[in-house]
């Protein structure tokens, strides 16, 4: 399959996404008609509110701030989680040491971390990033570690038999095999990053989309609140499809090789 082929297929898959969005909008509209505009504004009004925000410079800055925090937090957690996970995958001793810590991290609710981080760092970027790293670390760690532990040992031997040194074996064979489990973990972690960024902003008064949501709540402005939520989702989708998906589809090309083009299987 050529690259142009794959890009076309990728764009084609957008239709199913669009269909799902239209379905959501229909349910939303039904809810709006049942409960009235003070509980749920209609999708159209929300889109109008987004349009108004899109023409304001200030709104762009707010969105950019959240985007910057979520993406930088994600980058941190992707690096740290992958490094720890790979180390854990190769060394059972590290794995045994880190696993209980991961369980602890998973057991403490993110809200608790937000409170702690607020006390430590105040309403700053650092607060948001720290909470993102702590919330998404278990996912990335597990993804990387599982990828290493479930790798095919025969491939390591093959590569060694043909003269690859430890470094080449690691990058060409070991790390390459983690992608199966690592990329789904990245996608999850990216979602967590956005959710946690907005939540941490809202609670720690750190501006950004979370801050804007807090404002909307004070003014009981449903349209504004829904508009900001939609913007956060749009940002997430944009980052996912420009950052994670292209790399993933390039790396997973062989998996799709045996599947026919289009919807039929």
């Amino acid at each position: 399959m050529t690259r142009a082929h794959r890009i076309l297929e990728f764009l084609w898959s957008g239709w199913s996404g669009l269909a799902a969005l239209c379905l959501l909008a229909a349910v939303w509209q039904a809810g709006h008609e049942a409960y009235g505009p003070f509980i749920l504004t209609s999708p159209l009004e929300t889109i109008q509110a987004i349009g108004v925000l899109a023409s304001s410079r200030e709104a762009w800055e707010i969105a950019a701030l959240t985007l910057q925090r979520a993406v930088s937090g994600f980058a941190l957690v992707a690096l740290a989680g992958t490094a720890l996970g790979v180390a854990g995958g190769y060394s059972p001793a590290t794995m045994r040491l880190v696993t209980p810590l991961i369980t602890v991290l998973m057991g403490v609710p993110p809200i608790a971390w937000i409170v702690l981080a607020m006390i430590w760092f105040g309403g700053s970027d650092a607060t948001v990033r720290v909470v993102i790293v702590i919330s998404a670390l278990p996912t990335v760690f597990m993804g990387a570690a599982r990828g290493i532990t479930t790798r095919d040992p025969v491939l390591d031997k093959m590569s060694e038999a043909f003269g690859a040194g430890a470094v080449r074996r690691f990058f060409g064979i070991g790390l390459r095999q983690t992608t199966t489990t690592l990329f789904p973990a990245f996608a999850l972690a990216l979602g967590t990053s956005f959710k946690v960024a907005v939540m941490a902003e809202l609670l720690s008064n750190a501006g950004g989309i979370g801050g804007a949501l807090a404002m909307a709540r004070m003014n009981l402005d449903i349209a504004q609140a829904l508009a900001w939520v939609s913007i956060a989702v749009i940002l997430l989708i944009m980052v996912e499809y420009t950052l994670v998906q292209p790399v993933k589809s390039e790396i997973d090309r062989w998996r799709h090789a045996a599947q026919p083009w289009g919807v039929k299987r």
Partner: peptide, 28 residues
């Protein structure tokens, strides 16, 4: 210089047949 033909072929699933052969050539 040795080479080995493994019992269960030991091909890298993410590389094409040519890519697999080329991998050994590059290492050599």
């Amino acid at each position: 210089r040795h080479a080995m033909i493994f019992q269960d072929s030991a091909l890298m699933p993410w590389a094409t047949a040519a890519g697999n052969i080329d991998y050994a050539l590059r290492l050599s």
